[in-house]
């Protein structure tokens, strides 16, 4: 891995209308169908739809917890202030062939480059946050943009959604009910508050809130108990990235069903398939990576421990990779 790289550049539009980007030793080009990535020891090609969906999550999640694999070759590792960009680092064949490559960037440098790339390469009508049946095509020569779709911010409640001054509940005016959640009960809890306790007596319909989500695979914080974060999300089709954990992560399936393919975090070797139905709870250990498949739009409660100390504790063996033993 090289030291922190700062070299970034942007080209004039190519014959397809898209700019090319350089990040240290990496170059990123797109044409009508594909993204082409080159680094000093190799090259990679991937469909532009898959790449933009992954890029959207990496940006929206601020590089998330641990590793965001765009696919089996390309991805990022979050060090919370700086970020590794890699090719083949978590691919056993690339590692053995010594074709893998990784460079470290200041957070703001790589975030800025990624945002510019997403902005330039997202055409009018394509929403990389949306389910496949709810968006237009990303393909073809450059035509317009979709800044409104790609600049939506992730919900991050400070205490709980619905409290005065915190994130607001969703309504018909702001978030129509999704087509796959038209049957979800929208009734709100009955709340009686004594004078003076308006900031402390609070409740909201989480299922109704989720039924109105206009994005998929985008965990957003709705309640906070110190470093314990409820990050529910609505899922349809395939998680556009393969998430490599740097800490234990928990899933509670609130509705419907998701199948998770679980692989070894370092090599990508298959480890298990986890099928989760409503009410099921499962941990994702800190040494795996996972990708979810949801046939019908479903509600998933992602539960995170946001402690900044956890990655080092686990990496140094001071904390286990599994949450519980018996």
């Amino acid at each position: 891995m090289t030291d922190t790289a700062t070299l970034t550049s942007v080209s004039e539009p190519n014959e397809h209308g898209y700019r090319s980007f350089q990040l240290g030793g990496f170059t990123f080009d797109r044409d009508e169908h594909f993204v082409h990535i080159e680094w000093p020891t190799g090259r990679h090609v991937t469909p532009v739809e898959d790449f933009l969906k992954a890029l959207m999550r990496d940006i929206a999640w601020n590089f998330f917890y641990g590793t965001v694999n765009f696919d089996s070759v390309i991805g990022t590792v979050n060090h919370y202030g700086n970020v590794d960009l890699f090719a083949g680092r978590f691919n056993d064949a690339y590692r053995k062939a010594e074709l893998d490559h990784m460079e470290n960037f200041d957070h703001d440098v790589i975030m800025g480059a990624f945002k510019d790339m997403l902005s330039d390469w997202t055409n009018d009508g394509f929403d990389p946050f949306a389910a496949p049946q709810e968006t237009g095509s990303p393909y073809g020569v450059k035509h317009g943009d979709n800044e409104a779709a790609i600049t939506r911010t992730r919900v991050t409640a400070q205490r709980m959604v619905g409290l005065p001054g915190d994130e607001k509940i969703r309504t018909d005016e702001t978030h129509p009910i999704n087509r796959m959640f038209a049957d979800v009960d929208q009734s709100e809890p009955t709340i009686e508050v004594e004078p003076g306790y308006e900031n402390d007596v609070a409740s909201f319909n989480l299922f109704a809130y989720l039924s109105r989500s206009d994005v998929t695979w985008n965990p957003s914080i709705v309640s906070v108990c110190k470093e314990s974060l409820y990050c529910p999300t609505t899922e349809e089709f395939i998680l556009p990235i393969i998430h490599g954990n740097d800490r234990v992560e928990w899933f509670l399936q609130l509705s419907d069903e998701i199948t998770w393919r679980v692989e070894d975090r370092e090599t990508g070797a298959p480890r298990a398939t986890v099928v989760m139905k409503a009410g099921d709870v499962a941990a994702m250990p800190a040494d795996i990576r996972h990708q979810g498949y949801s046939s019908k739009r479903s509600m998933l409660l992602v539960w995170e421990n946001g402690s900044a100390e956890l990655p080092d504790l686990i990496a140094t063996g001071q904390a286990p990779t599994v949450p519980v033993t018996w």
Binding site: R159, M160, V161, L163, V184, D185, S187, E188, P189, T190, I191, E192, V193, E194, Y197, D200, V201, A202, S203, F204, N205, L206, F207, A208, V222, S223
Partner: peptide, 14 residues
């Protein structure tokens, strides 16, 4: 007393 909530399926209360 501060108040009370009657919560049904899917309702989250602090």
């Amino acid at each position: 007393p501060m108040g009370q909530v009657v919560a049904g399926q899917g309702h989250m209360t602090m």
